[in-house]
Design a protein around this nucleic acid. Structure first.
Lengths: 261, 261
DNA sequence: ACGTCTGCATTGTCTAGTCAATGAGGCCGA
DNA sequence: TCGGCCTCATTGACTAGACAATGCAGACGT
């Protein structure tokens, strides 16, 4: 009745609001009508209105700021470049490439570092060629931008490889962990990147202050030496509303037919 | 009371179920207790139980198969390799690299193709250097595996570039769209890949039969010729529960310091 | 043996309310 | 002028129901 179109009432209300968001009538940051007022305009109970709004929250379009109201989510993605690891020398040696880039844009990065010894999770164990009972050194970092958490960066190293090295010290490594690995005779020259897309676990959601309706990308890097030995696994958790992953390719010398990938 | 630990009742119930899933007590494919039985074991009304289950659905851990019950989601990810575009010659020329790989694993791929002329969406217009009022040729594909939709692959070409070519014909291009572009004097030798992580739009969700709690990766490729002209944009929509994006890197000749990216 | 029909368990939708929690803004006193 | 307190609008959590929709299995009929 209010909207033509089929489906349950809460879907129609959600469709109506979604359309108004996409059309720009409700711009990013705008306040949605209160639940109370929606009950009047659509002639349903508050429970139904709440169900409608919940749909939009789960789509990541709307955030709730209790008790101020519901607002259209603002999304600003910063560019995240996996390839930079080997591309550019940081101008601020105490930060890595990602954060370095942000400094140049006038933002204030910071990070926390913790080091622990523990058994590796199954995916890491498999990639390092270890058993799940083995011990790895884990360097856990949370990176912040302007005071809010931005992403996490957890590195896993085989214990025997980095025992006693700077990697086990919970402070920033100015010259980079790759450099330390090289000094230990395990220079990383090859890497496999994997990206997995899913909803955050409750742990991740709280560590990164991720709201409802925001998925994450898990960017996992396995680093290998020249002779194919895996020497580190990094797991980056990137909230979807804050990152745009970008990389570049140039066609190899001898081209072959390729279709529309 | 039922579980120690704080928070609202529905959260505790959700936490309880989540723990049982992660511990393996409720394995992938297992049926959750019915809402009715959960009301009894936790001493709450059905509305509260439903709220708890909804949390798990939105986390992507649980699917509802009405009216059979709720089940622990099965996840199987296939490896998706953006770099393959230029790497390997397909053994089945009528399919592209991604599907080709699946044939080898004994799965049955198929696809639908539609071609239309329309104005480009803003992100595509920006990357092709066009105005939003211009016209582009859009080749829309949906790829299926064993009968269920797997991902979508929409290519955008400037109209003047491909006018009258095979690209405008809604059938498979055996030798690949890249080859056709080359024959038109616009050989693609460089590409920029971007990956955006978000919840699917309702359109995407229905086109790909994506359930609640499953995010997507939007993999956007902008292809350039030798002299830097953008000649195509491809938008791949990859449901997160079905894909693992993978690519490889080798360190360039002159190494520079890099930190733990 | 085979199709059809019917009942049923289970989830989906919706109503009508109550009370709690919380951020913001205004009021008031020092 | 400034800090603290109070009010209030709004969302969050929960109860107690009713009825609809739908796959499946078992009964039934041919």
């Amino acid at each position: 009745m209010t909207s033509r179109g089929a489906g349950p009432l809460y879907q129609r209300i959600a469709d109506n609001l979604r359309a108004r968001i996409q059309s720009g009538e409700l711009a990013a940051g705008a306040k949605l009508p209160t639940e109370e007022s929606l009950t009047k305009t659509h002639g349903v109970t508050r429970a139904t209105v709440r169900q409608a709004v919940q749909v939009l929250v789960n789509e990541g379009l709307v955030v709730s700021e209790r008790p101020r109201g519901h607002f259209v989510r603002r999304i600003e993605r910063l560019i995240y470049r996996p390839q930079k690891e080997w591309r550019e020398r940081p101008t601020h040696p105490e930060l890595d490439q990602f954060m370095d880039e942000q400094v140049e844009l006038g933002r204030k990065p910071s990070q926390t570092i913790a080091v622990e010894l523990a058994a590796p999770p199954p995916d890491v164990a498999a990639r390092l060629g270890l058993a799940e009972g083995d011990t790895v050194v884990i360097r856990k970092r949370v990176r912040y931008l302007d005071g809010t958490p931005f992403n996490t960066n957890d590195s896993y190293f085989p214990l025997e490889l980095v025992q006693g090295s700077e990697i086990m010290h919970p402070a920033d490594i100015g010259r980079g962990a790759n450099q330390v690995l090289a000094e230990l005779g395990a220079e990383q020259t090859h890497a496999v990147d994997e990206i997995e897309v899913r909803m955050p676990t409750p742990d991740e959601a709280s560590r990164l202050e991720i709201g409802l309706g925001v998925p994450v990308a898990m960017h996992r890097v396995t680093g290998y030496t020249d002779n194919g030995r895996p020497v580190r696994v990094v797991r980056n958790v990137l909230p979807g509303d804050r990152h745009l992953i970008a990389f570049e390719r140039t066609r190899p010398a001898k081209p072959q037919k390729g279709d529309e990938q």
